[in-house]
C-alpha cells in the first residue's frame, strides 16, 4: 500500500519534522560524545565550544515544537501520524535535555581542569560514556528503522549504566574518604556520573516513546533498574 498522503504538503511537513528531529538527535549525540572526550582531554577551547553549541540544540528543539504544533493545528493528524507528531515533540524535548546534561558535564569538566590531577579520583567515566553513546546511537537507528525490538533492547541496556554508576559512586566515596583533597574533584565527578546516568534514563524514555509510536501501545512498566546510589548512608 502506498504510504503517501493524498495531500503532499502533509507529507512534506511530516518529513520536515522527521528530518529536524534526526538532526537534533545527531547534534545531541555529538555533544554527549564530545563531553565525554573532553573529560579525558580537558581542552578548555573544546569545552567552551561545546558549551556554546548548546544553543543550537535549544533553537532546533524550539523549531521542532513550533512545527509540531502547526501540524496538529493545520493537518489534524490521526492514528500513526498523530503518534508520530506527539512522539516527535516529546523526543525532541528529551534530546534537548541530553544536550543540557552534556553541557553540565562540560561545566564540571572545566572546573576539574582547574584542580590538580593528583587530587582527582581515578574512575572510568569513559566506559560509562561509551555504553551511553551506544544506547544513543542504537535508539536513533531504532527510530529511523521503526525497530520495536531494538527499542526494547536499548531500554533494557540502561541497567548496565545504573550498575556502573553505583560502582563509580562507591569508588569516588572511598577515594574521598581516603583523601579529603579529593572531595571537591570527587563531587564534580559524582555529578558528571549522575549526568551520564540521567542521559541513560532519557534514552530509555525515547525507547519507550518509539515503542509506542510503532505499536500504538505503551511498553510495559517493568524496566530493570539498578541505580543503588540513593541507598548508601553516611556509614
Amino acid at each position: 500500500m502506498n504510504n503517501d498522503h493524498i495531500l503532499s504538503t502533509f507529507d512534506n511537513d511530516l518529513n520536515r519534522l522527521n528530518k529536524d528531529l534526526l538532526k537534533l538527535a545527531k547534534l545531541a549525540t555529538e555533544q554527549f560524545v564530545n563531553s565525554i572526550d573532553n573529560f579525558s582531554t580537558q581542552n578548555i577551547d573544546d569545552i567552551d565550544q561545546l558549551i556554546s553549541n548548546d544553543k543550537n540544540l535549544d533553537d532546533l528543539d524550539e523549531k521542532i515544537q513550533q512545527l509540531g504544533f502547526e501540524i496538529i493545528a493545520l493537518r489534524a493528524p490521526q492514528a500513526e501520524d498523530l503518534r508520530r507528531v506527539i512522539s516527535a515533540l516529546k523526543i525532541s524535548t528529551i534530546f534537548e535535555r541530553i544536550g543540557d546534561y552534556s553541557r553540565n558535564i562540560s561545566n564540571r569538566t572545566k572546573a576539574l581542569c582547574e584542580l590538580s590531577s593528583d587530587d582527582t579520583p581515578g574512575v572510568n567515566i569513559g566506559k560509562m560514556g561509551l555504553v551511553t553513546q551506544e544506547m544513543l546511537e542504537d535508539i536513533i537507528i531504532a527510530y529511523k528503522d521503526k525497530d520495536s525490538d531494538l527499542s526494547v533492547k536499548v531500554r533494557d541496556k540502561d541497567v548496565v549504566i545504573d550498575k556502573m554508576n553505583t560502582k563509580l559512586y562507591q569508588e569516588v566515596l572511598a577515594s574521598m574518604s581516603r583523601n579529603k583533597k579529593n572531595i571537591v574533584s570527587g563531587t564534580h565527578i559524582l555529578f558528571i556520573a549522575k549526568s551520564i546516568e540521567r542521559v541513560g534514563d532519557y534514552v530509555t524514555d525515547i525507547a519507550e516513546h518509539n515503542y509506542f509510536l510503532i505499536n500504538g501501545k505503551p511498553l510495559s512498566d517493568n524496566r530493570p533498574k539498578a541505580d543503588k546510589t540513593s541507598l548508601y548512608g553516611i556509614d
Binding site: 500500500m1 503517501d4 498522503h5 493524498i6 502533509f10 493528524p77 490521526q78
Partner: peptide
C-alpha cells in the same frame, strides 16, 4: 491498515 490509511488521508 486500510482504516489507518483512510483516516490518515492516504486513500
Amino acid at each position: 491498515k486500510q482504516t489507518e490509511a483512510y483516516i490518515s488521508g492516504r486513500i
